[in-house]
């Protein structure tokens, strides 16, 4: 299969999102903001006002905290950028999407097809996975400027809302589409076909773990 490369705006129109196929390689142009548990809790549970115009400024939510420092003069030094695993944020994402109109959720490992069908597809959103993980230096090169860092005093540098201007930032991989299909689950299914052969000759542990399953199509997320 030939891998297709696509350059995408971080405020994409519906057609551009609909056109994306599982496994496409994406490079992004425009504003991206980072938001993970700290930002979600502050905005959704503590009802703090989100300090950006969303989605008009950006529809791209990156599950990330960069390797970065805020200098004493208030300037930023941002080095490498990689994602953190997204499945942990499923509890906040439906409300976040409804509130912010996010169409590109960027992170590590994707979500389940259940998540995609329940609230990604209805919101016209897809999931972009970082590559590797992670190509922190390559992604760092794609950061043109840091436009702002919100809530760093309240949340710390790692959980703050970083607003970065991306110029051909990538690579990312399309991991869900508007049909609700999941790239990782597609790959899991192919690999599962081989697992019985690999496990041949092994035996279950003498001491079981409470609640343990031997269903190898199972996943540790979700």
């Amino acid at each position: 299969m030939k891998i297709r490369e696509v350059t995408l705006s971080t405020t994409p129109n519906a057609e551009a999102v609909a056109d994306l196929r599982l496994g496409d390689i994406i490079y992004l142009d425009g504003l991206i903001y980072t938001a993970r548990e700290g930002v979600y809790m502050r905005a959704l549970e503590q009802k703090a006002n989100i300090p950006m115009e969303l989605p008009s400024q950006s529809a791209a939510n990156f599950h990330c905290s960069p390797a970065a420092v805020i200098r004493e003069d208030g300037s930023f030094d941002l080095g490498a950028v990689t994602a953190t695993a997204s499945f942990r944020f499923a509890k906040w994402l439906p409300e976040w999407m409804a509130k912010t109109g996010a169409r590109l959720i960027i992170g590590k490992g994707g979500m389940s097809s259940k998540d995609y069908n329940e609230y990604f597809v209805p919101n016209g959103a897809v999931y972009l996975s970082t590559v590797g993980y992670g190509t922190g230096a390559l992604l760092g090169r794609g950061v043109e400027t840091v436009e702002a860092v919100h809530w760093h005093e309240e949340l710390g540098i790692a959980q703050a809302m970083w607003v970065i201007r991306a110029r051909r930032m990538g690579p990312f991989i399309v991991a869900s589409n508007l049909q609700g299909e999941c790239l990782f689950e597609r790959e899991n299914a192919k690999i599962s076909e081989n697992l019985d052969r690999v496990y041949e000759g092994t035996k279950p542990a003498v001491l079981k773990r409470y609640g343990e399953t031997d269903d190898r199509s199972d996943e540790v997320i979700g």
Partner: peptide, 28 residues
């Protein structure tokens, strides 16, 4: 095809990190 792409991207990433003297991964 996809895992090959990933490994090539990682090899490029190591070069970029050394050239720019920036961390190879954002999660350090």
């Amino acid at each position: 095809d996809l895992s090959s792409f990933v490994l090539q991207a990682m090899l490029e990433n190591y070069e970029a990190a050394k050239e720019d003297r920036r961390a190879m991964c954002g999660d350090t």
